[in-house]
């Protein structure tokens, strides 16, 4: 933005030939704008910038605040139920029509919860790659999910085509598939 600013101030310098009366009118307008900003508790941000709560930011640019590194987190089961790991991002539509399964406690849903926490933390880390705590949590979920996946596959059959079953059969084709009735237990 500094390049932009320089160009603007050059233009202002070039415009010095304006009549004195016009210049003072410009000055009055500037002062009024500054007073307006002060009255509204906004900072004067200068050319190319505008006010956000407590900050200046570039004009003509959509702004979503960065999530803080120490935001509260749900446990993985609750995260799966809520659809997010972060209470701060949990913005439901209308509470009264929300319904949920009383308990997600099947072996598969436990694995789903761990995998979900991994997916969610992965997205978070993509935009917060230096958050060491989140990375450590991500690592511990990955370890737990690896163990959980092995246990699940040993009892209920393959999740990947390459998960080999102990009894030697080709169980990849076993019904039900995930979209079918009973495919989510």
């Amino acid at each position: 933005m500094y390049a932009e600013k320089t160009r603007w101030s050059n233009r202002n310098t070039a415009g010095l030939s304006v009549a004195p009366a016009e210049r003072s009118a410009e000055k009055v307008a500037e002062q009024t704008a500054e007073e307006d900003r002060e009255r509204n508790g906004m900072t004067a941000c200068g050319d190319g910038q505008g006010s956000l709560p407590g900050h200046c930011a570039s004009l003509a640019f959509p702004y979503v605040p960065m999530q803080d590194q120490n935001d509260r987190r749900y446990g993985q089961q609750e995260a799966l139920r809520e659809g997010t790991l972060f209470p701060g991002l949990n913005l439901p539509f209308r509470r009264e029509i929300e319904t949920r399964f009383p308990a997600l406690n099947s072996p598969l849903s436990e694995l789903m919860a761990l995998d979900f926490a991994i997916d969610e933390l992965g997205l978070y880390l993509n935009t917060h790659r230096n958050d060491e705590d989140a990375l450590e949590l991500f690592r511990s979920y990955v370890r737990l999910a690896k163990e959980g996946r092995e246990k699940y596959v040993a009892t209920y059959g393959p999740l990947l085509q390459t998960d080999l079953s102990a009894n030697g059969g080709y169980r990849w084709l076993d019904d039900p598939w995930p979209w079918e009735k009973g495919g989510n237990h």
Binding site: Y63, V64, Q67, G83, E120, L123
Partner: peptide, 22 residues
């Protein structure tokens, strides 16, 4: 509705992440 509610919440999280990416 239980599933739709989950999917809806994902849109909100994705919006947040795309905003951070921007």
């Amino acid at each position: 509705n239980d599933v739709i509610r989950f999917l809806r919440e994902r849109e909100i999280v994705h919006f947040q992440r795309f905003g951070e990416g921007l």
